[in-house]
């Protein structure tokens, strides 16, 4: 007759073997869903990482183009020799190209377009 400890060890062994076999037989569709879930979990970090300097390059180029467009519109609207507006435009350029705002630029392009239009209209 097996004593209690031996019986428990046998139960441990057999149940673990059954569990391991069950895990090993996970079907492909389930594995695929798990991989997607994992990608979703770690993807959040990757997206955040995009906010790093390397990701600022395209956002910076877009911001520079936007700022140039604002300046060009202001130049066209303002008579020559009125430096005050140009000074405001340069200030806009600083704001638009300020590194700390690039996350916002990347995430809310609609806002940037709207803000540019508003700025051009106000000029």
């Amino acid at each position: 007759m097996q004593d209690m400890n031996e019986r428990m060890r046998e139960l441990e062994r057999r149940s673990r073997a059954a569990f391991d076999a069950s895990v090993d037989s996970t079907d492909g569709a389930t594995r695929s869903r798990l991989a997607r879930a994992r990608a979703t979990a770690t993807g959040g970090l990757k997206r955040r990482r995009i906010a790093g300097p390397a990701a600022w390059v395209p956002a910076g180029a877009a911001a520079a183009a936007l700022a140039a467009a604002i300046l060009w519109q202001r130049e066209a609207a303002d008579p020559p020799g009125v430096p005050a507006t140009t000074a405001v435009a340069v200030e806009d350029l600083d704001i638009v190209t300020g590194g700390e705002d690039f996350d916002l630029l990347a995430e809310d392009a609609d806002f940037v377009v709207w803000a540019a239009a508003e700025s051009a209209g106000a000029g």
Partner: peptide
């Protein structure tokens, strides 16, 4: 983290 999750995900699901 990806390696860790890949290692535990199937057992965790079971």
């Amino acid at each position: 983290l990806d390696r860790f999750l890949a290692g535990v995900e199937r057992r965790a699901l079971r």
